[in-house]
Design a protein around this nucleic acid. Structure first.
Lengths: 157, 157
DNA sequence: CTTAAAGTTGAAGTCGACTTGAAGTCAAGT
DNA sequence: ACTTGACTTCAAGTCGACTTCAACTTTAAG
């Protein structure tokens, strides 16, 4: 096998769209791995690109790096996710997205009714008071939430 | 007029649902105002509750405090927003929410197609590569994004 | 062999929106 | 007058996900 799976940092950065500092950070966080040259430089295997695409996808869906690590650890080693792995995960992600969408729609619709009703005081306003939307707030402090911003798309060629 | 508009910090905190530290922070940031007693303690006017409700609503829609300050400054002084003020603002918020919803839907639908097509590699995946969704990225670094989490509802009585 | 580009580390900085802590002051009831 | 709880300020801390910096070292080309 050719040096095809001996990608340098800059190459992975370019192809994944992540900054090299982010790659180092992800490695420290245990999300990706790399071997080293004699001199101590990182060399990545091709598979890391798929892993990074997965990470970005998960971030887009709203998962934290901690959650992503758990998800990745569930796929033993570098085992390529099986069809059932992917089914399980994508179903979960789909559900998350649905929840986020529903929360936003409820908020938007509440706003629409506010426009109509002229409740300028916002006192009972569904927008400032979306209690029915943000339920499921876990006692411990966890929560149901809407996603952070949409991350940069992969620059992968 | 009775001391009705001489609310103490703890009272505003209780009725607005914001921590008193948050109220102090908002004051420093120029979002709300308070008068002082001889001894230097804050006394709020009733109107601050409406303002806080507005702030929470705006936060729920995804505005930053900076954006909210601009919005508030646009309403000269403590002028109660007129019908047209509110129409303008709520239209803007509605639009923002629609954008966020559309972005999430595109993401979700891309995910659905991924499940069907079995593109486990995620190479061309719409989820890791939602370029068409996150357009409008301003050159300067601004962006189009999805909202942060849904804030706590007002505890206002 | 030289050189420039690319890579290395650890520590510290950034951003937004607050919270926490320490140390001291005010307001109100008895 | 005393006590207690509410309040004050200013500085620093927090969280997540990275980025930036300084000071070196390795690699590859010429």
């Amino acid at each position: 096998m050719k040096p095809t799976d001996q990608l340098t940092v800059s190459e992975v950065a370019r192809r994944s769209g992540y900054a090299s500092s982010a790659l180092r950070y992800y490695e420290r966080e245990g999300l990706i791995a790399a071997s080293r040259t004699g001199g101590g430089q990182r060399r990545y295997q091709r598979g890391v690109l798929r892993r990074l695409a997965f990470i970005r996808a998960a971030r887009n869906v709203g998962l934290s790096l901690d959650e992503i690590r758990v998800e990745l650890d569930q796929l033993p080693e570098s085992r390529t996710p099986t069809k059932s792995d992917w089914l399980r995960i994508s179903h979960d992600w789909h559900r998350r997205l649905d929840e986020q969408i529903e929360a936003l729609q409820a908020l938007r619709d509440g706003l629409a009714s506010c426009i109509g009703c002229g409740c300028l005081s916002l006192r009972q306003c569904a927008i400032s008071n979306p209690a029915d939307v943000a339920v499921d707030r876990v006692p411990g402090g966890g929560a149901v939430f809407l996603p952070p911003l949409l991350r940069q798309p992969t620059a992968q060629d």
